[in-house]
Design a binder for these strands. Structure first.
Lengths: 228, 228
DNA sequence: CGGGACAGTATTGTATACAACTTTGTGCCC
DNA sequence: GGGCACAAAGTTGTATACAATACTGTCCCG
């Protein structure tokens, strides 16, 4: 693997870099993240890589298996349901708060985000579109000015990206940006109740677009499958 | 510091041990957690201590300051409000679900928990009582069978303990166990709506019992105070 | 030819050595 | 005596060496 150009990677920088790659589906669920590989790729020692992997494991993006290594997490159907259950408890009310606090600058930012997402979709950059879609939700939490809830939602969004990688059914990504457009309208009107309802339905639509029948997620490797 | 007897402490065991000590207020907010001290106390090298501290920092129980060390976190009044805001979004609905799924064994467990809490209070073991009070809330999430939400609540409860250490006003701890008793009644009746409402009010009471006027939390040390 | 034991290889787990930084103490100069 | 520069001590940050464990391939035996 080529060395990634960067003067000096910190633990957090590496964790963020990996999280982004996971979020964009460049590192699909089950991918092994070898310590030596990563250390060489980033040009540092395993010490920092280990710390970054530990950080990602606390966000449930990486599964650590003792003496076996780190793997990009593979949420089960149950975990997938739970993640969206949690999001539906947090995000609608957060959208409500955000609507009431919305400024012109915030609206412009969200609008730009939607535009970029469209552009990414048109260019066939699905990973980037997914990342931007997540950023939209995160931005809403930021606008609601709830740092703590924002941190929780941030993790849930990243996990949602893994869930989508495993269980996405429809290819119709249009509904995504449309829902965001509708939310933006409600935000522009500072209509908290409408934003709350739209967010709630948006999340329900997302879950509905998943195929969570009890098919086991693809194993990390053929070997893994044989061990069961 | 004396060496704590244990054949071999793992990273998670140390993190759990420290978290418990923080939860019970044996390690008050601002306490410096020196790596050498902990390594000697647990009879292991700094490597594992660092990993445990990193884990705790991800739960916002420990604040890591580069080149300065690890300190038991000192939530700001704002953070305190946000933590209870998050709890009030998650816990009432979770209590609702729990009520519908409640079994006799669950009821017995919760009942025992309340009894222990009473006993601890009578014995003047306030730290232990606080830990048990937190466990009650965590147990509810477990009964609701929502692992993901349970993990989030677990962190919020631990942080709440730090908040209470810093901002607790009333000494009247009676309301605590009374609220838990009322919840238990609703659970026994499998009355989800009542449980949801009781939990909501219980959390509101908790916030109301805090003094979150913008007094800065006590500094980690005299030195810290002078630096500002 | 199949299966199991075993050795070799590769990867992770832990401890430790050293570097970098912060803090603390001392002394000089004004 | 106050303040600044500098030196010393202590603590954290990072890399690396070694130990422990898991994986892979080979050989031997039935």
């Amino acid at each position: 693997m080529n060395k990634i150009d960067h003067t000096s990677w910190s633990r957090d920088a590496i964790a963020a870099d990996l999280e982004r790659a996971i979020h964009e589906h460049r590192l699909p669920p089950g991918t092994k993240l070898g310590e030596d590989d990563l250390a060489e790729a980033y040009g540092i020692s395993r010490t920092i890589v280990r710390a970054a992997l530990l950080a990602l494991s606390h966000r449930h993006l990486v599964q650590l298996r003792r003496n076996r290594g780190a793997f990009v997490a593979q949420p089960t159907p149950r975990e997938a349901r739970e993640v969206f259950e949690a999001r539906s408890l947090l995000e609608p009310r957060t959208a409500h708060s955000a609507a009431l606090r919305m400024t012109e600058a915030d609206l412009a930012l969200l609008n730009e985000n939607i535009r970029d997402e469209h552009a990414a979709l048109d260019a066939g950059e699905n990973g980037r579109a997914l990342l931007l879609s997540g950023q939209f939700h995160l931005e809403v939490a930021r606008i609601a000015d709830q740092t703590t809830i924002e941190a929780v939602i941030s993790e849930l969004i990243s996990r949602s990206s893994l869930i989508i990688a495993l269980y996405w059914r429809r290819r119709a990504a249009l509904c995504e940006t449309q829902a965001h457009h509708a939310l933006l309208d409600a935000f522009a009107r500072k209509d908290g109740a409408a934003a709350e309802e739209l967010m709630k339905n948006h999340l329900l639509d997302l879950v509905a677009s998943l195929d969570l029948r009890n098919v086991a997620p693809p194993p990390a490797s053929l070997r893994e499958a044989l061990q069961r």
